[in-house]
Design a protein around this nucleic acid. Structure first.
Length: 311
DNA sequence: ATGTCCCAGTCTCTGGGA
């Protein structure tokens, strides 16, 4: 079973590239971030034609997360189950609620998390806030968002699946934090900014503390391979990037992983690539009991225009 | 090199975000 995560930087602009990548990499589950679409604009049909169901959670111009799966999608959760997100186009909350004024900035009210059970594993696609500048209100909001993610993960770990056993958990996405100095092209150049600060790395450690580990790093102990490169200044061609797209997994999933890689080729285009590359893991399926519950569920899970219950 | 790409609205340019 192949699971991948990819910040596509606009699913509208990247749909052709995503279709080509699905054909080439054939993931069973693809977690996407920064779709930058409303749910009503989510491109269900191209995914259906490629054999995937799509679960999309968006707000319009900014953010937006999705899960494409060809091994079923059930038990969806959006926005940690916390209710409606802000509509960035109108400034109003989807379905009513508080507005998005800057003084009310709270990234947990944005479309940054969607989860479902796919192929017998609970997966979550997350897009962490950028943070902009250390100690800015946006940075404080980023740390607060990680606390919400960690609280949700603590509840999700150990959930019982339909077969009666513990349901594995994969939290994949754009974490906007490089876990260690091995995950940045130059520690001196990066230090002082966001993505590498001690509080951000402590937030990742707290998340791992609920029982998660870094799937890619466990398979590839050597640094120097990154998942994001700035579009500017030839950063990609100089391999000056960061590894900020991560797959955090529970031990039962970690023990099944047989391969992990970052698809650097996908960062090249043509025509215009995302500034992120996909991160891929392969899980051994031997010994995993067949469960008609998730195969048969191949439901036509459409883009949802209202949040699902916290499950 | 303040370097590029994406979006919506003011709409063939500008401003905000990453």
């Amino acid at each position: 079973m192949r699971i991948a995560t990819w910040n596509v930087n606009s699913l509208k602009a990247r749909m052709d590239a995503v279709e080509r990548w699905l054909e080439r990499a054939r993931p069973d589950v693809l977690l996407m971030q920064e779709t930058k679409l409303s749910d009503e604009d989510a491109p269900l049909m191209p995914f259906q034609l490629a054999g995937y169901d799509l679960l999309h959670h968006g707000e319009g111009r900014w953010n937006g997360v999705a899960i494409a799966s060809r091994v079923g999608i059930s038990d969806p959760v959006t926005n940690f189950g916390d209710g409606p997100v802000r509509d960035s186009r109108s400034g109003a909350a989807v379905g009513g609620g508080a507005n998005g004024a800057e003084e009310d900035f709270d990234p947990s009210r944005e479309a940054r998390m969607v989860s479902a059970v796919c192929g017998g594993i609970r997966v979550a696609s997350i897009y962490a806030p950028n943070g902009r500048v250390v100690d800015s209100p946006f940075y404080v909001g980023k740390l607060r968002w990680f606390e919400r993610l960690t609280a949700w993960a603590a509840e999700a770990v150990g959930t019982t699946g339909p077969s009666g056993g513990t349901l594995g958990l994969v939290i994949g996405g754009d974490y906007n934090v490089a876990p260690t100095d091995e995950d940045v092209w130059s520690a001196p150049a990066a230090h002082g900014g966001t993505h590498v600060s001690e509080p951000e790395r402590a937030a990742l450690a707290a998340l791992r503390g609920v029982g998660l580990s870094d799937a890619y790093r466990a398979q590839q102990p050597t640094g120097g391979r990154f998942s994001w490169w700035d579009y500017r200044a030839g950063m990609f061609h100089k391999n000056q990037g960061m590894r900020i797209d991560l797959l955090y997994v529970t031990p039962d999933v970690a023990s099944r992983i047989i391969w992990a890689e970052i698809d650097r080729e996908a960062r090249k285009g043509p025509p215009t690539p995302s500034d992120h590359a996909p991160v891929v893991i392969d899980l051994d399926t031997a010994g995993v009991p067949f469960d008609a519950g998730w195969v048969g569920a191949m439901s036509r899970v459409a883009a949802r225009t209202r949040p699902a219950s916290g499950g």
